[in-house]
C-alpha cells in the first residue's frame, strides 16, 4: 500500500513525448504549453503531454485511458524504449535521460522488468530458455540461470512445461512465461503494458488473482497499464487517467470516483459501480452512541466486499480502524449502503 514516507522510485518532471521531425523545436517554441491540435497541424503527434508524478517504493500505479491516449508511450519513456522529447525522469534518484548506453543496459539488467501485451516471447526458445534469457544476457553462468529460471517456472505455476515452446502454450500460459521472464533478474521496478488484454475474461480474472498473489509476496514498484477500469480498481494503489497524452487526474481509486478532477474523468468513471471503489470510510458517519450492532467493520474495507453482511444487519454498525487497535472511529447506517448500491 502507498505510504508517503517511502522514497519515490520513479519520478517524472514535465515529461513530454512528441512524435515528428521537428518536435523538439516546436516544443521549445511553445514554452511548455502544448496543444495537440496545433502540433498535429505541424505534422507532430503528441504522445505524452507534460507528465509529472512519482511512484513510491512498493506502490502500484495503474495508468488508464482510451486507446491512443499515450499510456504505452509514457511507459516507454520511463523505460527509455523511446527518448522523451523533454523533461526529467529519475529512477531511484538517478537521472535516466542522461545515462549513457552502458548505464542504461545495466539499469535494465538489474532494476527493470517488463511484461508485454502480446507476450513477446522468443519463438525459438523453450519456456525455460525464455525465462533464463535475461540472465544469460547479463552473463550469469548457465547452471545458475537455469536454476533461477526453474524457480521462476514454479513461481508462476508452469512446472512440467519448462521444455515447451511458446507455440505450444495457451495465451494465459504464455503470459505467465512473460511474467516469469520479467521477474527473473529480480527487478525493483516492474512495468506491465496491458498484460492481460489479449486474454479472454475468465483467464484474465485468474491472472489478476495470480498477479495480486505475486505482488503480495514480491512487493515491487509497479506501473501497470490497462484500459479496463475493473482491472484498475482491483489492482491499483493509485490510478492515473490519461487523455490525449495528458494525465487528467492521478489519485486513489475512491478519490477519482468521488472527486473527479475534470469532466473527462467524471464521464470516464460515471458507470463505475460505486461499491466497488468506495471504502466504508467515505460513507461513514461520526461516532454514534446509538450504534447497537455488535458487528464491527473496518473503515478501509471496500463496500462491495461487506455489502451482504451489512445489509443483513438492520442496525447501525460500528466502524473501526484496523490500524489503531480497532479503535472505533465512526458508525454506519445500512440505509446508506443501500443508497450506494441502488441509488444514483
Amino acid at each position: 500500500m502507498s505510504d508517503n514516507n517511502q522514497p519515490s522510485v520513479i519520478k517524472c518532471e514535465s515529461v513530454f513525448k512528441i512524435f515528428g521531425n521537428n518536435a523538439k523545436r516546436l516544443l521549445e517554441n511553445s514554452s511548455g504549453n502544448v496543444d495537440a491540435k496545433t502540433f498535429q497541424d505541424a505534422g507532430c503527434i503528441v504522445g505524452v503531454n507534460n507528465a509529472s508524478f512519482d511512484v513510491k517504493k512498493g506502490e502500484m500505479l495503474v495508468v488508464m485511458g482510451l486507446s491512443g491516449s499515450g499510456k504505452s508511450t509514457l511507459l516507454r519513456c520511463i523505460s527509455r524504449l523511446t527518448e522523451a522529447t523533454s523533461g526529467k525522469i529519475f529512477i531511484d534518484g538517478d537521472d535516466l535521460l542522461t545515462m549513457n548506453n552502458k548505464e542504461l543496459i545495466e539499469l535494465r539488467r538489474n532494476k527493470m522488468g517488463m511484461v508485454f501485451q502480446n507476450f513477446a516471447l522468443l519463438p525459438h526458445k523453450t519456456v525455460l530458455e525464455n525465462i533464463a534469457f535475461p540472465l544469460q544476457i547479463k552473463g550469469t553462468n548457465t547452471n545458475e540461470s537455469i536454476a533461477k529460471a526453474m524457480e521462476m517456472v514454479e513461481l508462476v505455476g508452469l512446472k512440467g512445461r519448462e521444455n515447451y515452446f511458446p507455440r505450444e502454450l495457451s495465451g494465459g500460459q504464455q503470459q505467465r512465461v512473460g511474467i516469469a521472464r520479467s521477474l527473473a533478474v529480480e527487478p525493483d521496478i516492474w512495468f506491465l503494458d496491458e498484460p492481460f488484454s489479449a486474454l479472454d475474461p475468465l483467464i484474465r480474472k485468474e491472472m489478476q488473482d495470480e498477479f495480486l498473489r505475486l505482488q503480495g509476496v514480491l512487493k515491487k514498484t509497479i506501473m501497470f497499464v490497462t484500459h479496463d477500469f475493473d482491472e484498475a480498481l482491483r489492482l491499483a494503489d493509485r490510478i492515473a487517467i490519461m487523455k490525449d497524452g495528458i494525465i487528467e487526474q492521478l489519485d486513489t481509486p475512491d478519490n477519482i470516483v468521488l472527486n473527479p478532477a475534470t469532466e473527462y474523468v467524471k464521464k470516464f468513471t460515471e458507470d463505475v459501480p460505486r461499491e466497488k471503489v468506495l471504502k466504508i470510510e467515505s460513507i461513514m458517519d461520526p461516532i454514534d452512541s446509538n450504534a447497537s450492532s455488535n458487528i464491527e467493520i473496518s473503515k478501509d474495507a471496500i463496500i462491495e466486499t461487506l455489502a451482504e453482511s451489512i445489509l443483513n444487519s438492520k442496525e447501525i454498525l460500528k466502524v473501526v480502524d484496523a490500524n489503531k487497535n480497532n479503535e472505533i472511529v465512526g458508525s454506519l447506517d445500512p440505509a446508506k449502503v443501500i443508497k450506494v448500491l441502488f441509488g444514483k
Binding site: 543496459i105 508485454f116 535475461p134
Partner: peptide, 14 residues
C-alpha cells in the same frame, strides 16, 4: 513485432 525487439532491449541486450 516491435514488442519482441523491446522485450530484448528490456532484457538488457546490447
Amino acid at each position: 513485432s516491435p514488442e519482441i525487439v523491446e522485450s530484448g532491449l528490456m532484457s538488457g541486450c546490447n
